[in-house]
Amino acid sequence: MTASTQFWTHARLTGLLLFLVTLTHMAGFQIANSFAVPGNFAATGLKIAQNEGLYRLALLSYGVSSIFSVALAVTFALWLAPISRLGAGLVLGWRLFEAISSTVAWAIRFALVDNQTQPNLLGTPGAEALHRVLRDVSNAAFDLGAIGLALATLIGFFILFQARSLPRLLSAIAILGAMLILVSSVVTLGWPATDIPSSIAFAVTLLSNLVIGLWLLVRGDRSSEAKVLAQQA
């Protein structure tokens, strides 16, 4: 397989995995969020108990997203390597950090299901206190994962922006979303009580990832500069 063919293949695989990671993440988020009753532990637990299978499916969807993120980290790095080996290494590292952090967060969420739905020796107040502590740990892991995602996205799509491997508008939107996620996640991690809206940041990033994933899956990387770099490598 020639360098240019590998470049094309890695771009398309990155597009496929980016689309799958984003889709499974969005599905899990929307389903899990539909069970949440803000500030009411008992009501949330009751809703989960009434349809526990669907709730566990949502958590599983997040887990699948994290697994796909590992493969995405590898293909994204392989795609970027002919352009910037340093950048590819940083993207790989931050993407793997994001996948590990997210997996830890969702493992804690899985463990909390029984705490919400089953009788607990601690009683309702104790179960609620335990839930609050573990949920705070889970949220911190999510914030760390989001920071890793943002840094990987900033580095990766800045490289693609310079190389014109994608339409520059798509790269710019991805960079903007990553900057918003980075700021909101750092603030939330450092000051948990801060009520900073992060939904817009994630919406911009997730929607742009869907579009970019489809673009790469269909078009691949056809930029002349990228092909020259790949052939030289």
Rank of each mutant, 00 (worst) to 15 (best):
G93L: 05
G15A: 09
G39H: 08
S4G: 07
V218P: 04
L214A: 02
S184G: 01
A81G: 10
L176E: 04
G148I: 09
Q162S: 01
I212S: 03
V186S: 08
T75M: 02
G87F: 13
R222A: 11
F35H: 09
I100N: 12
F35D: 12
I31W: 11
L207D: 01
I175C: 02
G93Q: 03
T22D: 04
L13S: 11
G156Y: 05
D221M: 08
L182W: 03
F110E: 11
S224G: 13
G123E: 09
Y62T: 00
H25V: 11
E98D: 14
G177Q: 09
Q116N: 06
L17Y: 07
A11Q: 03
S101Q: 09
S34R: 07
L57I: 15
A152G: 04
A43P: 12
I200W: 08
L18R: 04
F41I: 05
L60V: 06
Q6L: 14
N120S: 08
A77N: 04
Q50W: 02
N120G: 08
K227W: 14
W106R: 08
V70M: 13
P82G: 10
A43Q: 12
T75S: 10
R164N: 02
K227L: 15
P167Q: 05
L189Y: 02
Q116G: 15
L121K: 12
G213H: 05
Q30I: 13
G87I: 14
F29T: 06
L166F: 06
V113E: 04
T9M: 10
L23W: 00
L18H: 11
P38S: 06
V21Q: 04
A32S: 13
Q50E: 14
L13F: 08
E52M: 08
V186E: 02
Y55G: 06
A146R: 15
L180G: 00
T22W: 13
A172R: 05
V113D: 11
G63S: 03
S199Y: 02
L182Y: 15
T22Q: 07
I108A: 01
A3L: 07
G53P: 07
V21I: 15
G145M: 04
S184F: 11
P192Y: 04
N120V: 03
P119H: 12
S102N: 12
M179E: 06
V186H: 07
W191D: 01
V104L: 11
K227P: 03
Q162E: 00
V37M: 00
F158R: 14
P192C: 12
F97K: 13
D221L: 08
L182M: 14
T205F: 13
G213W: 15
W191M: 12
T2M: 13
I159C: 00
E52Q: 15
V218F: 07
L60M: 06
R132V: 08
F35P: 03
T194Y: 15
G39I: 08
L78S: 08
V113K: 14
I173Q: 00
F35I: 11
G89C: 02
D114T: 06
G213R: 10
W79R: 14
